[in-house]
């Protein structure tokens, strides 16, 4: 484990997930079945599992993109499970990186990075532009500012998406299969970039992947299967979730 990831278990965690379930289609689909997870400030956690294991669903709940069906979900001690309008929470605290990049096709790379900044008040057009340029320089895309996403390679698009995720200087980066659409060499570069950002900014990072090599970039690997955590090196013994099926 990286020395930087040594955390104080008595401090308030970034995320405290207690016995969370998530059902779809009126209970016919149980995506999460009583997940308990604690993520400390500055941690780099990978969640690994096969398709349908519930890892992306859990990531959506952490980012308040969806509500849990039951259980408690806290961010820095505050219940975020059923925020009436979680937009401000997402804008201030969360940066998203998606597998398919999800850059808006009619906007240039620089404009794409500005998009999340509209979610927070107080940003002027000038400050948005300056921040976007600064972030794109940080991910090595200063030569691509005015290009449309379609003109970029997969790796460049993901770099742009990473710059966008950092737009509002979030507390947490949530990455959903960030290398899933990239070749292996580019995937390594992207993971190096994410590792560098984590090391430099101490941003808490939660990464979802089905690729063990990618997962190993994190300091902690949480394994999921059938909506449950089946392996977590930091799980408290009492609440370890290797449930019988």
């Amino acid at each position: 484990m990286d020395s930087q990831d040594q955390t104080d278990n008595t401090a308030t965690p970034i995320f405290d997930v207690v016995d969370v379930t998530k059902e779809f289609d009126q209970g016919k689909v149980q995506a999460l079945r009583g997940v308990t997870l604690r993520i400390e400030d500055g941690e780099f956690v990978s969640m690994i599992g096969t398709s349908g294991s519930g890892k992306s669903t859990l990531l959506h709940l952490l980012g308040s993109l969806d509500h849990p069906s039951s259980g408690t979900l806290r961010f820095k001690g505050q219940d975020i499970g059923n925020l009436p309008d979680p937009a401000e929470f997402r804008a201030r605290e969360i940066g998203y990186i998606f597998q398919s990049f999800h850059l808006l096709p009619t906007f240039t790379v620089e404009e794409n990075v500005q998009i999340p900044m509209f979610g927070l008040p107080g940003n002027t057009a000038k400050s948005r532009k300056e921040r976007a340029v600064e972030l794109l320089e940080a991910v090595g895309l200063s030569h691509r500012l005015g290009h449309l996403p379609t003109k970029l390679s997969g790796g460049e698009r993901q770099r742009a998406a990473i710059a966008r995720s950092l737009a509002n200087n979030p507390t947490v980066l949530l990455a959903d299969e960030p290398t899933g659409n990239l070749d292996s060499d580019t995937a390594v570069q992207i993971m190096q970039l994410l590792g560098k950002l984590h090391a430099e900014h101490r941003t808490t990072m939660v990464l979802v992947t089905h690729d063990i090599e990618v997962a190993e970039n994190a300091s902690r690997i949480v394994q999921m299967k059938d909506g449950r955590i089946i392996s977590d090196p930091k799980a408290p013994a009492a609440s370890h979730q290797s449930h019988p099926s």
């Binding site: 937009a87 401000e88 997402r90 998009i115 999340p116 979610g119």
Partner: peptide, 8 residues
């Protein structure tokens, strides 16, 4: 995506 990026 806009909602995920913090748009209200």
């Amino acid at each position: 995506i806009l909602l995920a990026l913090g748009w209200k």
